[in-house]
Design a binder for these strands. Structure first.
Lengths: 140, 140
DNA sequence: GTCCTTGCAAAGCGTTTGCACAGAA
DNA sequence: TTCTGTGCAAACGCTTTGCAAGGAC
């Protein structure tokens, strides 16, 4: 399994060190968006000499090679996710959790574009997630 | 002119201190999105004893009373803007400037919503702005 | 007098940097 | 040996906090 991931890194021109492979594997197997701190805590038991600096390095590298994407929401800690299908994010203002929402990209017409070259777009919804909605209903 | 703004603050239940009124007036007259540091530097000549803490306080207050909105883009310093019409943001990756783009909100269909209550949405485009596009063309 | 506002200094916290050591090619 | 990767500690920059002084009512 890891061999597969190793090859993906190699193909991209990234030398598959243990830390790089571990980080990449973690995201591949678990999905989602995670902070440096979270990944550090997830991997430090398996890699006892691990440092947060290395997590910063590896994640920056994976972003640079366009395997990962940075997710910046509000003043929250920076999160990272694997580059994948078009989707948007939903942040619950009650539990602060961040969800992926399937969502097509917006297509602006030419008058609006007006000379701008759009290379990327990020859509963020804020509100209340299903779980917190249910809790509020229970309390009524 | 400031009297008008004074009344807007009063109506919202905000006591119009000099700093609050100055900050609010600055945004009303100049528009756009600005950082704490920028506003501090714009106002410190008029208000010599001004501190950044006060700018933080005032902007947080204006956000709390829903006159202002927080704009967080990438790892850039937090910016603030007056709550106004629906629009999205465009960040130029060359000059790093942030532009307002007129843009209707996205409306998801019910299957996608799936129990989520959407209260707000922010759309961010990234790419190259017209000015930087022209510069690139000149260099070709 | 009481409450709200202001401003300084310090603390906090995520992130980056410098540098030396370790490891791979 | 040379180049790349790693990890510690310190520095950095934005933001928040504690607290005391000032000002409004």
């Amino acid at each position: 399994m890891n061999v597969k991931y190793k090859d993906i890194l190699k193909e991209k021109g990234i030398r598959p060190s243990i830390i790089r492979l571990s980080v990449y594997t973690y995201f591949k197997e678990n999905g989602g968006h995670h902070t440096v701190d979270f990944i550090y805590n997830e991997l430090k038991d398996v890699l006892p000499t691990l440092s947060k600096t290395s997590i910063y390095n590896v994640l920056s590298l994976l972003v640079e090679y366009q395997l990962f994407k940075v997710v910046n929401i509000d003043q929250m800690e920076t999160q990272y996710e694997i580059v994948s299908d078009e989707h948007s994010h939903f942040k619950c203002r009650v539990c602060n959790e961040l969800f992926d929402i399937p969502c097509q990209h917006v297509h602006l017409n030419n008058e609006e574009l007006n000379g701008y070259t759009i290379e990327n777009q990020d859509l963020l919804f804020t509100g209340v997630c299903p779980k917190c909605n249910n809790k509020e209903k229970e309390n009524e």
